Amino acid sequence: MYFATIAASAIALAGAASAAGNPAHRYAQLRLWGEPGCTTLNLGEEGIYGDQLSQCNLLDENDVVRSVSFEGADDGCTLYIYSDLECHLTKQEVTVGTCLSGEEYYRSFELFCDV
Rank of each mutant, 00 (worst) to 15 (best):
Q92T: 15
Y49I: 13
D84E: 13
S83N: 13
F3Q: 03
I11S: 09
E35G: 00
D60Q: 07
Y2S: 07
T95A: 15
D74L: 13
D51F: 15
G50H: 01
S54Y: 10
G50S: 11
D84I: 09
G37Y: 05
C113Q: 06
Y2G: 07
R66E: 11
T78Q: 15
N62P: 00
A20I: 01
A12P: 02
E86R: 11
L89W: 00
L59A: 15
T39Q: 14
T5V: 05
T5K: 05
T40Y: 13
E45A: 11
S83Y: 04
L53F: 14
R66S: 14
G34Q: 10
T39I: 12
A20R: 09
E61P: 03
I81K: 06
T98E: 15
A19Y: 02
Y82I: 06
N57V: 05
Y105N: 12
V94P: 01
S69K: 04
Q55W: 01
Q52A: 15
Q29W: 12
V94L: 15
C113R: 04
A4S: 02
G97Y: 02
E61G: 07
V94K: 04
A20T: 02
Q55N: 07
I6A: 02
Q92L: 14
E104L: 13
D63L: 04
T95F: 14
I11P: 01
E110H: 08
V94D: 05
Y49P: 00
A7Q: 03
Q29F: 13
C99D: 10
C56Y: 09
N22G: 10
S18N: 03
I11C: 05
R31W: 00
F70H: 01
A14C: 08
L43F: 05
T39W: 00
T5L: 03
E71D: 14
E103C: 10
V64P: 00
S101I: 08
D74E: 15
I81N: 04
D63C: 03
N42R: 00
P36C: 12
L100N: 06
N57F: 10
M1C: 10
